[in-house]
Design a protein around this nucleic acid. Structure first.
Lengths: 205, 205
DNA sequence: TGTTTGATTGACACTATGTCAATGATATAA
DNA sequence: TTATATCATTGACATAGTGTCAATCAAACA
């Protein structure tokens, strides 16, 4: 149990605690005010620290938010890495549906936070970059899956894996944001079924 | 020729001219600095007017930018309203390809401005709203097209027109932004062909 | 106990916004 | 022609946020 928090020197303990207070207060303020309207003053007030203290632990508002996002983003990375080795078209269809559901469900489980994330992506280049990392990870992974399906003669070979993966993820991502911002508008299941049908079979007879 | 600019009272002429100077200066500043880093001070300096003058003609930076966007947005509306009455699957495929090309081409022709638009969408709820208007117009129009194709027995009837239209537009939109931000990464033709193939025929055999 | 180290702090300099009372120039009326 | 009304123009001001830093305070150490 070396390095357990409660046997650190009291000074470092205190510092850790201050940092935690700032993170907790930050989360509350971001959820309440949104990203743009949240200010450092509101955070330090809620955390009961001095103004300068926030800047000791975080370079600025963006960095504070990125730290708060990290957990959530790691969960997305996990979904992106799901294995995919279908032996038949039907199995592929089911696998795909399952991954779409996990992706959308994760976003909906963290809906309040995801709303703030969306706002933050638009405002802060650093946070946008973080999200692009997730996106590219998904697309890379889906590309691999498509190449695998093509090798198995399940998928059409005249489609470019990278472009197809990208287009497919874009639809998923945008529906995700739509559901996050506008839960009531669509049934999550309808979205999944329609997306997957489109992807696997196309629109035309 | 009633109301032609040069027979208005000199005072109104002057006012019009001031407004134009602000718009021109605004465009230059936005293109040079981007949306967030553009300031009213930079604009009025370039327009050679007093600080307060900008606020006489525009409520704030957002309104000034929206005025500058208007032309461009109307061009998108025109693309959205393109007619679509295919008699056969091949004709549908060609029609769709044509519309995708117009959409992407318009964005690329106004690439510098579209970069700023993208940034502005993320920062300003009013501007985001404007873009959502365009998006919904496209989706509405595509939904109609899909229903038409379904009625003609060209398109699969087990797909929901509204959801399918939305998913399809999302792919197009996101590729558009990708091309705008990152021209060199993809060949515009490859994108069009792959998107259209996916949409009409799906990924799986 | 005295000294060093590092956590904490708020005042400060800076940058931007949006408002408004004053100014100046044009149109109108006498 | 002159007086007056109208309205475009203006920059100083109040406000609100950011990020920095020299000073302070308390724990660790010698």
């Amino acid at each position: 149990m070396k390095n357990s928090i409660d046997q650190l020197p009291a000074r470092q303990q205190q510092a850790l605690k201050t940092r935690q207070k700032l993170l907790q207060a930050g989360k509350e303020v971001f959820l309440e005010k949104g990203f743009q309207k949240a200010t450092i003053s509101q955070v330090i007030k809620k955390a009961k620290t001095g103004y300068g203290t926030a800047y000791v632990y975080f370079k600025n508002k963006d960095e504070l938010f990125i730290t708060l996002m990290e957990d959530l983003m790691n969960q997305f990375y996990e979904v992106a890495e799901m294995p995919f080795k279908p032996q038949a078209k039907e199995e592929a269809y089911e696998n795909i549906k399952k991954q779409v559901r996990l992706f959308l469900q994760l976003a909906m489980d963290e809906r309040d936070m995801m709303k703030v994330v969306k706002e933050a992506i638009g405002v802060s280049p650093e946070i946008e970059e973080k999200w692009y990392g997730i996106r590219e990870r998904f697309i890379e992974r889906i590309s691999v899956d498509i190449r695998y399906a093509q090798a198995q003669r399940l998928a059409k070979e005249n489609l470019d894996p990278a472009l197809t993966a990208r287009g497919w993820f874009y639809s998923n991502e945008m529906f995700m944001w739509e559901l996050v911002m506008n839960q009531e508008k669509y049934q999550i299941n309808d979205v999944i079924v329609n997306l997957t049908r489109m992807y696997t079979g196309g629109l035309y007879e």
